[in-house]
């Protein structure tokens, strides 16, 4: 199979890195795969578009950086514009439906959209939009199992917020399954 490369982009404050940690952790700790997470460090990490990069593989990971992502998550238009050119021509793009208007993508790219911010607001906390995205990513990509992702959410978020975050995960996951059923 070889490594699966994932790049998650968004605005500083959207929980981009945490989403990457949860996906990487789900693969490495609960799915018995290997994963390596790297982040872009530098002035761009504050305020504007930032990213988390995760490589998931059955075998130990040698090259830790993401070069041509198979899967990209865009949670802001800035992040989409900045990172989308790196996506593989047959890659999959997951977007925040109301914040990202994709343009100029190669024909082979499959796009799936979720109104993560609106769902998070319905749950009472806009903050959990990244976990909605993690749920959505889990359903669409199949890179990590639902069970592993749930465990990773549970042991990563602050204990008092587990219920809320699991709800966010479930809403994102259900939305993804619904889209797949239609497709």
């Amino acid at each position: 199979m070889g490594p699966t490369e994932i790049k998650i982009g968004g605005l500083g404050g959207q929980g981009v890195i945490l989403a990457g940690i949860i996906i990487g952790k789900a693969a490495a700790l609960y799915d018995n795969k290997h994963s390596a997470l790297t982040q872009a460090f530098g002035p761009e990490a504050r305020g504007s578009a930032c990213s988390a990069q995760v490589v998931v593989d059955e075998d130990p990971i040698l090259y830790p950086y993401v070069q041509k992502p198979h899967l990209m998550v865009s949670m802001s238009q800035d992040a989409f514009v900045k990172f989308a050119p790196e996506l593989r021509e047959d890659g999959t793009l997951l977007i925040e439906e109301e914040l990202v208007k994709p343009q100029g993508l190669p024909k082979g790219v499959k796009v799936f959209a979720v109104p993560a911010t609106r769902i998070a607001e319905e749950l009472g906390k806009k903050m959990v939009l990244n976990i909605v995205m993690v749920g959505f990513f889990t359903a669409i990509s199949g890179v990590v199992s639902e069970e592993a992702a749930r465990k990773a959410v549970t042991d990563t978020v602050p204990p008092s917020t587990i219920d809320l975050n699991i709800k966010a995960f479930e809403r994102g996951f259900a939305h993804g399954k619904k889209l797949l059923a239609k497709a």
Partner: peptide
């Protein structure tokens, strides 16, 4: 820096 900043199991 890579080993210091990369996250793995």
């Amino acid at each position: 820096e890579v080993v210091g900043h990369m996250t793995e199991k």
